[in-house]
Design a protein around this nucleic acid. Structure first.
Lengths: 141, 141
DNA sequence: TTTTTATATGAGAATAATTCTCTTTAAAGA
DNA sequence: TCTTTAAAGAGAATTATTCTCATATAAAAA
């Protein structure tokens, strides 16, 4: 997504288009290992030296609320952010704290079908997340 | 598990048996909605008024490290703890912040088999967690 | 274009969970 | 019982995040 796509996305959600919002959204798209708020702040401070930390958090919150990005949680107590909205799961390595996206429609369908056929009593499923924890081999990053 | 079972479990892991560790372990077993460190501290402060918060965290950490309990992460930024080691998944309701255990061997086997047959390149799976997010109906708690 | 107004930002204090440091205590083995 | 060493207590420190409020600015209205 380019800068004008970002503007459009913000406008469409009824959010004011501000340089900070554009910069933060761009940063999430660019920084690909599911950045933390801090990663994002550090990255955009090059172009926006005066951006306040609180602004970063507030913008992230409103982007999440408006479904433009997602929050990703790890074992650590820091939230991370993901601009990919397409249904996908995560591979997570606790050792390196690296998160990789894992696309596999088959497993999504398998789970969706399974729970369509086996409803859970007194519980309405909104989302199913599969977190695959392990270790990356042949680290190339 | 009773008090002597806890003593045995600690000894078996090479951990010293202290009143604080017993109290904390007992608290996790007793408080069943996946308590936070704070829940646990509040609960045991009745019997152990002088327990330090840091001790609670340190004990929880060593219990987790020794595989006696597990850490559970929710959407919120507080860690919660679970004394159930048996392979199970969690039902989580963001609205009420309630976590319920979900036992279903079938789904565990389904996932295990699936990933045995479909290995992920360059990634060694250690654990697969399924987090089922939604809403509890007929709240009875 | 200028004015208006509601919303967003900046700055920094406040909060909350967790960790750390250092001294004292006590569990477990000799 | 004595000794050793891990564990606990106290409270400061750290870290991520939220909050407050004055100022700035995007977008709508004139």
């Amino acid at each position: 997504m380019d800068s004008s796509g970002i503007r459009d996305a913000l406008t469409e959600k009824g959010l004011r288009v501000t340089p900070q919002r554009i910069a933060i959204y761009e940063a999430i798209l660019k920084l690909n290992n599911h950045p933390t708020a801090d990663d994002i702040a550090a990255h955009i401070k090059l172009d926006h030296p005066n951006i306040a930390t609180g602004t970063v958090y507030k913008v992230l919150e409103s982007l999440v609320e408006n479904g433009l990005i997602k929050k990703v949680k790890t074992e650590k107590d820091v939230m991370r952010y993901d601009a990919i909205l397409e249904n996908h799961n995560h591979l997570y390595c606790a050792e390196s704290d690296r998160i990789a996206d894992y696309y596999n429609e088959e497993i999504n369908n398998l789970l969706t079908d399974y729970f369509r056929q086996h409803e859970i009593p007194d519980f309405k499923i909104a989302d199913i997340k599969l977190q695959i924890i392990g270790k990356f081999l042949n680290e190339t990053e």
